[in-house]
């Protein structure tokens, strides 16, 4: 059994760890509440935009099928066979948030491994993701954009920056597709890893139904309007992903720190019990010795 002094040292250090993890949990909780409201406020915009784009995509398909001249496909809808694929991964800047970063990095690595030997482009959000991409050896990956230190204060300018890099890669570098991997904020206790295609804009699942589609008027012309609208749609989506990832990270950290605090508490209690037992054993031993000594003297 450990000595009393050792046990007291352990109690002290466990206690200070517990205090740290508890403080981190509180900070994460407060920040998470804030970014949760930010997402809830931002979702209507993204959802409405997505619905609009779905309709435009349907319209695009219908006109392409009809061989209409104005239906000439906008590059964002075009399915390309050649060109490097691109990955955008949303990780965090800091650790101590459970499996949050590990999940993103693992799934990104899988994506990259499947394309080993081919040239790929990559954009990394968060320090963890950037470091992972820089550590890669034997992959033909070109990093076109890094966004580090943006959490927990994401705003639309960050989405602008990343969005511009992504669109540049697609338009100027001829990227054939852009995949995003991020954590979605499902609830406080749950984050969901999402891997989806940002560009080209995915074809709507339902068959184009000409009757249900409104005949839109466009001002300015359809092509100009699309070229102004679609980049903004992409940026709005990226903005939502940044917010989702931010809230998910904070939620993950909160849970991880909560678990850590609980563990520390349990451990500390076990040590305290041990220490008390040791102390009591020593006292009992001393009394026994005293009694033994007195009896010997009296005898």
């Amino acid at each position: 059994m450990a000595s009393l002094r050792e046990l007291r040292g352990k109690i002290k250090s466990t206690k200070s760890t517990e205090q740290i993890t508890r403080a981190m949990k509180m900070v994460a909780a407060a920040r998470m509440r804030k970014s949760q409201t930010a997402i809830l406020a931002a979702r209507p915009f993204a959802v409405k935009m997505e619905r609009l784009v779905r309709e435009l995509a349907l319209l695009q398909e219908r006109d392409a099928a009809a061989g209409d001249a104005i239906g000439a496909v906008h590059p964002f809808f075009e399915r390309r066979s050649a060109g490097p694929e691109m990955l955008v991964l949303f990780s965090g800047d800091k650790g101590l948030c459970g499996a949050f970063n590990a999940n993103v990095l693992r799934s990104s690595l899988e994506w990259l491994r499947a394309r080993r030997g081919r040239k790929t482009l990559c954009a990394a959000v968060g320090r963890k993701g950037r470091d992972m991409v820089h550590r890669l050896r034997g992959y033909d990956v070109e990093v076109v954009c890094e966004l580090v230190g943006v959490f927990p204060k994401v705003n639309f300018t960050h989405a602008e920056l990343l969005g511009r890099a992504v669109i540049d890669a697609y338009e100027k570098r001829g990227a054939s597709s852009i995949t995003v991997i991020y954590n979605e904020f499902k609830s406080v206790a749950q984050q969901k890893l999402i891997s989806t295609e940002l560009l080209p804009i995915p074809a709507p699942p339902s068959a184009p139904d000409a009757l249900a589609l409104p005949d839109y008027g466009f001002e300015p012309g359809r092509r100009e309007l699309l070229s102004a609208l679609l980049p903004r749609v992409i940026k709005a989506q990226i903005y939502r992903m940044l917010l989702e990832s931010q809230a998910a990270e904070l939620a993950a950290r909160m849970n991880a720190m909560d678990a850590a605090s609980k563990n520390a508490k349990e451990l500390r209690e076990a040590y305290v019990l041990d220490a008390n037992r040791t102390r009591q054993a020593m006292i009992t031993k001393e009394i026994a010795e005293l009694v033994g000594g007195a009896e010997a003297l009296a005898g």
């Binding site: 008027g217 466009f218 001002e219 309007l225």
Partner: peptide, 19 residues
């Protein structure tokens, strides 16, 4: 404030997409 001048919208307007 549409791209090519102001544009008024009343109920029953045609479907439109404006910058």
């Amino acid at each position: 404030p549409a791209f090519e001048g102001e544009m008024g919208v009343m109920p029953g307007h045609q479907s439109f997409l404006v910058q």
